[in-house]
């Protein structure tokens, strides 16, 4: 068959896998809702969970779509579509594709016309994410069983443990937000090396110098998002507008993302 990155047969296969993944999500959704009903859980709460989750998802999903756009220049639409809606992660897929494409002596700007190069990229992307797919079915039950053993009988400790777990995760991401702050005093951290691909497949290393304050961009964005969240919380409490709480996270997310545009212009 003649090859094209946007060949209908690739779309067909991608469509089948995406349908199967959707099937899994719907299956677990209905199972969970059925169980919730049996247990007599508050249906208003469940409805809130559904709408809040759906609304919150919009902005990150559009960001994922942008990833598809970026990768589609060289890989066509179908493969990035599969990779980013199934087992993908925005940062991983772009890097994996970049690596594979650059090993082939091509940049992500040019469309791949060689089927052999295309399947190479597909294999790199598939093998990269395989570990999670293999180990989740094998390990999830064991990990959960282990969790239930460690001191969960003490109700109050179980709650503290739960909070500590989430705080630990959040603190790691907060740390990450500050990872480039050292550019303020460390001139070396301001130099970023980039491999630029040439037409003939070789690449040259280019260095760029970013501003000292560029490391503060994520910090400021985080601060804006945090302030919006705090305002939402105060607003909900003092004016008794509890709906505000349900949408506070998407509001602070979109507010933070929007603020990134002027903040980036200002600090970089």
């Amino acid at each position: 068959m003649t090859f094209s990155v946007n060949s209908p047969v690739i779309f067909l296969m991608v469509g089948i896998i995406i349908l199967a993944v959707l099937g899994q999500s719907f299956y677990f959704l209905f199972r969970a809702l059925k169980r919730a009903k049996e247990k007599g859980m508050d249906s208003a709460q469940l409805k809130k969970t559904i709408t809040a989750s759906a609304i919150f998802t919009v902005a990150p999903a559009v960001a994922i779509l942008v990833g598809v756009v970026t990768l589609s220049k060289s890989l066509g639409v179908a493969l990035p579509w599969l990779r980013l809606s199934v087992i993908g992660s925005l940062s991983y897929e772009t890097i994996a594709a970049e690596r594979a494409v650059s090993e082939l002596g091509q940049g992500l700007e040019k469309q791949i016309s060689d089927p052999s190069a295309f399947v190479t990229v597909a294999w790199v992307m598939t093998l990269g994410i395989l570990v999670g797919l293999i180990l989740t079915p094998v390990l999830t039950k064991k990990i959960q069983g282990g969790m239930n053993k460690i001191g969960m009988k003490d109700k109050k400790w179980a709650e503290t443990f739960n909070n500590a777990m989430f705080l630990g995760m959040i603190s790691a991401f907060l740390g990450f937000v500050f990872s480039n702050v050292s550019r303020l005093w460390d001139a070396g951290a301001r130099i970023i090396t980039e491999k630029i691909l040439q037409q003939d497949g070789s690449y040259i290393v280019e260095t760029a110098t970013v501003s000292a304050t560029s490391g503060l961009i994520p910090v400021c964005v985080m601060a804006v998002s945090a302030v919006i969240m705090a305002i939402c919380g105060i607003f909900a409490k003092t004016l008794k507008q509890h709906w505000m709480n349900d949408y506070a996270l998407p509001i602070s997310l979109i507010g933070g993302m929007a603020s990134a545009i002027p903040i980036t212009n200002w600090l970089s």
């Binding site: 902005a59 990150p60 559009v62 960001a63 942008v66 909070n163 989430f166 705080l167 959040i170 991401f173 907060l174 990450f176 937000v177 961009i217 994520p218 910090v219 964005v221 985080m222 601060a223 804006v224 998002s225 945090a226 919006i228 969240m229 705090a230 919380g233 506070a248 996270l249 602070s252 997310l253 979109i254 507010g255 933070g256 993302m257 929007a258 603020s259 990134a260 545009i261 903040i263 980036t264 212009n265």
Partner: peptide, 21 residues
């Protein structure tokens, strides 16, 4: 820049919820 800063925008709000409690 908006899409590049999605993680800080996300965890800023989430951090306020958990840290305040």
């Amino acid at each position: 820049p908006a899409f590049a800063q999605i993680l800080p925008a996300l965890f800023g709000g989430l951090a306020v919820v958990f840290i305040s409690k």
